[in-house]
Computed example of a mutant assay.
Amino acid sequence: MATDIPIIDAHIHLYPESEIPTLAWCSPEHPLAKQHSVEEYKTASASSPPKGFIFIETDRKNDLDAGVKDGSGWEGPLAEVSWLKRIVTGQPKDNEGHSKEDASLCAAYIPWAPLPSGPEAMERYIELVKKEAGESWPKVRGFRYLVQDKPKGTMLQDDFIESLRLLGRKNLVFELGVDQHRRGRGQLEEVLEMIDRAHENVPEEERVVFIINHMCKPDLEVYNTHTSPSFIAWRVSMFALSKANRTYMKLSGGFSEMPESLKQRSPEEIFDALVPWMTVILTAFGPDRLMFASDWPVCTVGVGDGAWEKWKKVVERLCWMASFDEDQQRKIWGGTAVKAYGIES
């Protein structure tokens, strides 16, 4: 990687210690149950300081899964928007781990949104986000509702599809998180149907952009990719997804899906083990639709403080293997993210 290529890390999570109780997944014994703010992120990425990052919602507690559609139970996600506004506008509270000087680092942020509740609820929610975000609203480039752990069929409900169409009309992306490793081939088949329905009979300029997290979380513990049904199903799905209109893929999330023993190996050894998956992703999407993303701090679990730099070196090796020229490398390290999210430079 040329040293003068600016990095935009397309997937990080942040939260102050004071708001940890609002995280739906975080128990007191969880390895990430401590503050992860800009200060900690800057320390983790200090070897190659990024020009900026894209914040992805952290799954705050809400009442949507209980069937609530009237707007109650949105306090946690809206508090997260308020937290990002303080970062973007350089207005920190005491002990939150960021300063006025950090304001320019957030290139964009992606809050949670209640897509299963349908377009009317989404309209109300987006207006609340806009009000809460205030002057940071231009940094809101889309929304995420994490479907990887939701019941089968969630993303195929009519209300969900209409919510996706609404995002497209508003020029906001949908951040897609699915999990082939744990949910199998069926979830990826749902994704393909969801995209087809969301784009069907919609003008090109109004079709929602899908930004796919973590290579769809493939099972990186597979030993023989030539015969593994899991790998073969994932490979078929990646090429099918790449044919879908307006889809982008993040080079991220690998540490969470690989065996514990591999996490401790060198970046070169990790890359060698991941070549079958990396080759598929590269062939399917190419540099125009691939983007570097660390998934910090999740990437540190089982890896340690050097995880950010280790994953960066894995992606550098991919660029080397592909013989990318400088223009193609610039896309991987930031250009694709700028294009996909519609970030103003």
Rank of each mutant, 00 (worst) to 15 (best):
N245S: 15
W234N: 04
E193A: 11
V209N: 02
P218I: 04
V178G: 01
F239P: 04
P229A: 02
N213T: 01
R183I: 05
N213L: 02
M249N: 05
F174P: 00
A233K: 11
Q180N: 11
W234L: 10
R197N: 08
F239H: 09
E204T: 09
R207H: 09
Y248I: 01
S242P: 05
Y248D: 03
R182K: 14
H181N: 14
I195Y: 02
A198H: 00
V173G: 07
N245E: 15
F239T: 10
Q187C: 02
Q187A: 06
E175N: 05
Q180D: 10
F174I: 00
R183M: 11
E200P: 06
R182Q: 13
S237A: 15
G177S: 13
V173P: 03
F231T: 11
Y248A: 01
N224L: 04
G186M: 11
F174H: 07
K243H: 15
G253L: 06
M194F: 03
E200V: 12
V208Q: 08
M249T: 03
E206T: 05
Y248W: 07
E193P: 06
L188I: 03
G253S: 06
F231N: 07
S252P: 07
A240P: 03
A244L: 14
S237W: 08
V202K: 04
E221Q: 14
S230R: 15
E221I: 11
P218Q: 02
T227P: 01
W234Y: 07
V208S: 04
D179F: 00
M194S: 00
V208G: 00
T225S: 10
D196A: 14
M215Y: 12
L241S: 02
L241D: 05
A244D: 10
H181R: 15
T247L: 05
E189G: 09
V236S: 15
I195L: 07
K217F: 12
V236E: 15
R207Q: 15
Y223D: 13
L172D: 04
H199T: 02
T227D: 10
D219C: 01
E200G: 09
Q180F: 10
G177F: 11
V202P: 09
Y248F: 11
M194Q: 03
I212A: 10
R197L: 11
Y248M: 05
A198Q: 00
R207S: 10
R246T: 08
A244H: 13
K250H: 08
E204M: 08
L188V: 08
I212C: 12
N224G: 05
S237N: 09
S242I: 12
S242D: 06
R183A: 11
S230N: 14
V209M: 01
L220C: 06
T227N: 03
F174K: 00
S237I: 04
R183Y: 01
R246C: 11
R185L: 13
P203S: 03
R183C: 05
W234V: 06
D196G: 12
D196S: 14
L220A: 01
G177E: 12
V236M: 12
H181D: 14
H181L: 14
P218N: 02
L192V: 12
G184Y: 01
L176V: 10
E200K: 12
W234A: 05
L241K: 05
S252N: 08
L192Y: 07
E221Y: 09
N201Y: 10
L192A: 12
P218Y: 03
R235F: 10
F174Q: 00
E190P: 02
L172M: 07
E204H: 07
P229T: 04
C216P: 02
L172S: 04
Q180C: 06
M238I: 07
L251E: 05
E189F: 11
